[in-house]
Design a protein around this nucleic acid. Sequence first.
DNA 1: CTGAAAGCGCTAACAC
DNA 2: GTGTTAGCGCTTTCAG
Lengths: 342, 342
Amino acid sequence: MATIKDIAREAKVSISTVSFALNGTAPVAEETKKRIMEAVKKLNYVPSSTARSLVTSKTYTICLFIPNPKSNIFKFVGNTLLNDMLQGIGEVIDEQNYNLLLSWDQASSSHSKMESLAGAKTVDGFLIFSPTDQMEPISFLIQHHFPFVFMGPQMDNLTMNTVNVDNFDISYRNTSHLIKLGHKDIAFISPGSLDYLLSEDRYEGYKAALQDNNIRIDDRYLYIGDSREESGYEAMKYFRQLKKIPSAVIAGRDIQALGVIKYSAENGLRIPDDLALVSFENSDIAEKHQITSISTELYHIGKEAARLLLKQINYKRKLSPQNLIIPSELFIRSSCGSQKQL
Amino acid sequence: MATIKDIAREAKVSISTVSFALNGTAPVAEETKKRIMEAVKKLNYVPSSTARSLVTSKTYTICLFIPNPKSNIFKFVGNTLLNDMLQGIGEVIDEQNYNLLLSWDQASSSHSKMESLAGAKTVDGFLIFSPTDQMEPISFLIQHHFPFVFMGPQMDNLTMNTVNVDNFDISYRNTSHLIKLGHKDIAFISPGSLDYLLSEDRYEGYKAALQDNNIRIDDRYLYIGDSREESGYEAMKYFRQLKKIPSAVIAGRDIQALGVIKYSAENGLRIPDDLALVSFENSDIAEKHQITSISTELYHIGKEAARLLLKQINYKRKLSPQNLIIPSELFIRSSCGSQKQL
DNA sequence: CTGAAAGCGCTAACAC
DNA sequence: GTGTTAGCGCTTTCAG
C-alpha cells in the first residue's frame, strides 16, 4: 500500500505538503494540491489510521461497551431495541467519521477489558450500556479522566455523563394514568429482576404513584417477570388467583403485555373492561395490539449519548457532567380503557 | 499515561528489555523481569495499541461489516439471530484477544467504508454479513489480498472464503420431508424478497425437491413473505382462497410459521391434520410452538467465520479459499404430522 | 542477557 | 507556500 512518501515522490513535493493538502492544515497552492490529489487517486492512497493516531493521539473510534452476550442482555433489553440504539449511535458517528468498537467483558478473564482499551488508548471514549450496577471500571475511567457516557441512571456517588429515560418517572406516569381512570387495585409486572436498575426504578415509580394517592401497596401485586411473553402470561395467571384480583395491570414491557393479553383472551377477561393494561416501550407490539404504552426511545438514547461523548472528546475544556433525560410520551390506546371516556 | 520509557526508567533497564520482557520475544533474566513487572503495575502501564500497530502493522481488530441498520437488516435476519452471531464471533475473538469493530456503509456517502477501513489499515480483516449481493467492495478486497470471510453463499464468479448454511439444501430437505409424508400440494412462504440470496436459495431448494419427485411447481403456491408474523398469517389467508388449497406449507422462517398457526387456529384448520407445517431456523419459537424446523445456526456461522478469518490473518502462507457449510438438523415436532406415524 | 539505534507512517513546529 | 526535521511509542535487528 502506498504511503505519504509515495505520494510526495509522485507529486514531486515534500511529505509535509502532502499532509497539509490532505488535512487542510496549511495553505497549499491550487496547482500543487491538484498534483497531490492526482497522485492520491493514482496510487489509491489512504492515510494510515494508526500512524495518524500515534501522533495525534486520537483514534476516531469509540467503544460501545455492553454486557457479555452470554448474559442474555439482548433478550433483556428487547430485540429491536438494540437495533434502535445502534441506529442512533450510528447516525451520529457516521456524521463525524468515527468508528464503533463493540466490546464486553469476557466471562473468563478477570481483567477488565474496558480498562485495557482505555489504557492502551485503543479508543477515544466509551458508551456504556449496562442495566446492572457494576461500577468498578467506571471509577477507573473517572479517575483517569477518560471520556465516557453512561446509558443509564445517574448514581448518587458518581459524577458522570448519563443519558437515560427516567424510568421512575415514566412508571409513575403509567400508574397515575390508571389511578386517574379510577383503578385502585393495580398490579405490577417487573420487566426483569429487581437487581436491574431499570426494573427497580420502574417498580419504585409505581409505588410512589400509589403512595401519593393514598393507595396501599400490596406486595402480592408484584410479579417478577422477564423478557419472555410467558412471564406476562404467568403473571396474570398468578394475579388471577389472588383473593382480590387487580382491575388493572402494568406490564414492565410490551412483550409481557402481550402475554397478559393472551392469558386474558384464553380466560374470558375482557381488556379493557375487566382489566386495564398499560406498558412500557411503545414498540411495534404495542402499536399492533393496541396497548397503551409509554415510550422509551433507545434510538434517541443512543443518539444523544453518542453526541455527548463526541462533544466531550472534542472539547478542549472540561465540560461539566450532564445527565440527559430522553423524554417519553404516553401513547394511549384501547388497552387501558381511557378512550371509552372520550 | 505511562509509556515504555517510564517503565524502563523505573526498572532501570533499556526500553528494548522492557519490550522483550512484556512480549517474551527475547530471554530476560528472572530478576530483571520482576523489576519490570513491578514498574508496570506501579505505573499502571498498558502498551499503546496504536504505537504497536504502527510497527507491527497489525491492529488486532476485525470488522464485522453489516448493512446499514436503517435497511432493517436486523429485522430481516431475525432478532435473536444477530445476538447468536455476535456470541459466536465474540467467543473466538475474546480467546485470541482481538477487538471487534462494527461498521456499515453510510446511506449518505457513496464512498465505500469498507475500502477506507482496509486502505487505512484500521482493521486486519472483515467478516461480511450481507444477505444481498452487492459485491463491489468485495472485489476490492480480493484485489488487494485483504483478509475477509463472507457469511453467505459462495458466488460463482468470486474466489473467497465463505461460511454459510446451505439454504438450498435445507429447503430441499424440508420439502422432501413433507413429500415423504405424502404431501403433494406444498406451498412455500419465502422468508423475504427473492432478491435476497437466502430467500432465493430456499425457494430453489423447494422447487428442486418438487421436481425431483415429479410434482408440478405451481407459482400460486409461492407467497413472498417478510420478517413479520403477519406475513405468515397473510400467506395462509392467501393460500386458503386458492382452488386447490395446499395440504402442507413451508414457512420461510419460524416467525412466519407462527402466523400460519395463528391463522389456522382462527379458521378451524387443524395442524398437522388439515395442514402440515415446517419451517426454518429452529429458534425458540419453533421449540415453544412445536413447529418442525430445520436449524440455521448463526452462532456457529459467526464462530466459524471468525475462526477462518483469524486463521487467514495469522497464517503466513496463503490458504486456499474455504467454503464452510454449517450443518443443519431437522427438528421434527408435531406440526408436520410425522410423529403420528411412529 | 541487555542496550543502542533505526524506523513504522504520519503531523506539526520551524525555517526559508 | 513549501521543505526539513523532530518526534508519537513501540518493535526489532544488531552489537556486545
